[in-house]
């Protein structure tokens, strides 16, 4: 157990040294500059636009980190042969894999936490500069309900990371990235798949789309960004249920990854 933590901290150290956290700076600069630009262009709706933009970029930056680091986590160790010295140390292969996973999750969470703080800071600043701003939008500028959307984004990205790690235990980074991104896109259009099943004539096809709907990770369930921006209620029970779904799916993927990884030969 302790080994998982040690490996995880090492992954975090690697991401810091590889300057992954620079993405936060990019996020902050982008957010500030668009805030300034939008403030010049539109009236009234700017808080909504900034919220949309901020939430979207938090999830996109997170997604890029999850996919591009996730696919390299194991592959790089194998390719550079650093795994040869690591695995003979007193650890199980599963511990190594989970350590890698939690290390990247740690990186992601810290990244998103800092981006969220910067995001709220910008919103608070806008409110300070334009005191009447809350009157024209549906929700207050520094609405705590947005944290629900961000929390679900974190769980979603944890799932993306698990999937990337799963693929990287047996395929090349390019293929892993392709498969992970493909699943992410498919998972976001999942509700179309269900609707598709309702309008097709063939019962076999309808059953097939239905089966795929349940098998594919339902990423669209994690998206409540527009709801929180429009101040529509997102009950805590929904957030809890969706998190439970995400965490169960993560467990499923990680067990699969560990089972494959435990039997792999490192030639």
């Amino acid at each position: 157990m302790k080994v998982i933590g040690l490996v995880a901290v090492n992954v975090f150290k690697e991401s810091v040294r590889d300057k992954v956290l620079y993405s936060i700076v990019a996020f902050a600069v982008m957010l500030m500059s668009t805030t300034y630009l939008i403030g010049q262009l539109t009236a009234g709706q700017d808080i909504k636009i900034i919220k949309d933009l901020g939430l979207a970029s938090i999830s996109i930056f997170g997604l890029l980190i999850a996919i591009f680091i996730g696919i390299g986590l194991v592959w790089k160790e194998v390719e550079k042969r650093s795994i040869y010295t690591l695995l003979p140390k007193p650890m199980r292969r599963q511990e190594f894999l989970l350590g890698k996973y939690f290390g990247l999750v740690l990186t992601l969470v810290i990244n998103i936490a800092v981006m969220t703080a910067a995001f709220y800071l910008v919103l608070a600043l806008m409110r300070l500069l334009e005191p009447g701003i809350d009157a024209v939008s549906a929700a207050p500028a520094t609405d705590a309900a947005m944290l629900k959307a961000i929390a679900l984004v974190v769980v979603e990205l944890m799932l993306v990371t698990a999937i990337a790690l799963f693929f990287s235990t047996f395929s090349s980074p390019f293929l892993s990235a392709l498969l992970t991104a493909g699943l992410w896109v498919a998972g976001h259009f999942n509700s179309d798949l269900r609707n598709f099943g309702a309008v097709v004539a063939s019962p076999t096809l309808a059953q097939l789309t239905r089966a795929m709907y349940y098998v594919l990770p339902n990423f669209s369930a994690f998206d409540v960004k527009s709801q929180v921006v429009h101040a529509q209620a997102v009950p805590a029970s929904y957030v809890a249920l969706t998190c439970a779904y995400g965490l169960t799916y993560i467990a499923l993927v990680l067990v699969g990854a560990a089972a494959i990884f435990a039997r792999r030969d490192f030639k």
């Binding site: 550079k80 042969r81 650093s82 010295t85 199980r92």
Partner: peptide, 21 residues
């Protein structure tokens, strides 16, 4: 065996480690 791993050392051929450490 984990107990065995505690008591042995191993140098692979042409060893390579983490660049960033």
């Amino acid at each position: 065996d984990i107990d065995v791993k505690r008591r042995i050392g191993y140098l692979p051929e042409n060893p390579y480690f983490y660049d960033y450490l």
